[in-house]
Amino acid sequence: MSSEGNVAVHVHRDDEASKLGMWLFLFTELTLFGGLFLMYSVYRYTHQADFHLAAQNMNTFIGALNTAILLTSSLTMALSITALQRGSKKLSLSFQAITIFFGLIFLVNKYFEWSHEFHIGNFPGSESLLNKSQGEILFFGLYYVMTGLHGLHVIIGMAVIAVMMKFTINNVITRTNYVKLEAAGLYWHLVDVIWIFLFPLFYLIS
């Protein structure tokens, strides 16, 4: 009872509350992207043909590959929790590391995709893009904002999992106290869910 800061941690541990809080936080992420999805749906509705045309620039293979990578990283994330619950700290750590690794690959792919678009001049404010139709400009605007924001979430997710690895090593996260890892997992899965929708909307409409 000596330090105020720690009171909450020691006296009162409520995993249920932590998870509820995390879910509520996920809802805020959901509606954050929801605003963009609302925007996407309206612009797509009003510029259907242009969107189809612009989507032809997208590389479906890389998109599908990235989907598979992210889904697999979700799997390893989920497995890391089970591993921990079954007492194998090492296995859990490896799964967490693999998750981060897959996140990294995802970003590398994304980097090549973006740099390709930049290379051929399809970036916001570029001359070649400004010469295109309004719908195509909107498509690329949405593409950069939505995948960019999603990429940012992947980076944050990787950082969070890295912290979780440190916690696991230091036994802050243990077999009986793993709610932090669970929360990190929830976050990572949400990032996956958002990609599940981004993928068809940008890559599969041509």
Partner: peptide, 27 residues
Amino acid sequence: TPIIGITLLLIIFERLFGVGLFDPSLG
């Protein structure tokens, strides 16, 4: 609240990068 968050963020992007999502001359 997140919906206004993203909307305001988009105005910032618009001012910084000219994304075009909120620029009437770009659609």
